[in-house]
Amino acid sequence: MKKPEEELAEIKSMMERSTRFLSLSGLSGVLAGLYASAGTGIAWYWIYFPYSAWGNESFVLPFRELLYRILFLALAILVAAVASAFLLSRRKSIQKTEPFWNPASQRFSVSLFVPVLLGGLFSFSLLHEGAFQLIPACMLLFYGLGLSQAASFTLGEIKQLGWAQLALGVLAAFAPSFGLLCWAIGFGVLHIIYGTMMYYRHER
């Protein structure tokens, strides 16, 4: 028989690997952060640049046009981020010869994407009702809820990331004028920070 310490370690590892999706790629978090930062930069330019002190006021977009542009930009960021996360996590799971689609990753996906999809729907209702100033808060809050739910089924760093998003969401809800800034910190900067941390801890 093996040494009891080794046997306990074996049991612990099996319990972790069967309940947690450990192939979540930190690198894809960094990429998502970069897309989001670039995106908020562009949106900020469209929204505020015409009115800023050093801006050129000749370029003011009509409201409808601005709305459609930002909507398209947001969807493009979302698609790019989800695709990067999917492809890089799959690559990581192949490298580690761990199953990619198993009960653990299914639970992870459901607990993350149910709140996120509902949040997306709610954001559209805010858009429809013209409550634009609350959209960043809504996105941050629902994403934070999804992350803190899904954290039980993946790497531990995700829990902290979820709480940070929730805190930013509350801040953005009470100070809507900083909404875009909070969104950029949450979806851009925090993704880059936590993605880098996860990369150095689990992928090297």
Partner: peptide, 16 residues
């Protein structure tokens, strides 16, 4: 060890 692993998994998953 295989039986030990199977039971470890079933302890933390409702079913597998």
């Amino acid at each position: 060890v295989l039986r030990l692993r199977i039971m470890s998994i079933l302890m933390v998953n409702e079913s597998y």
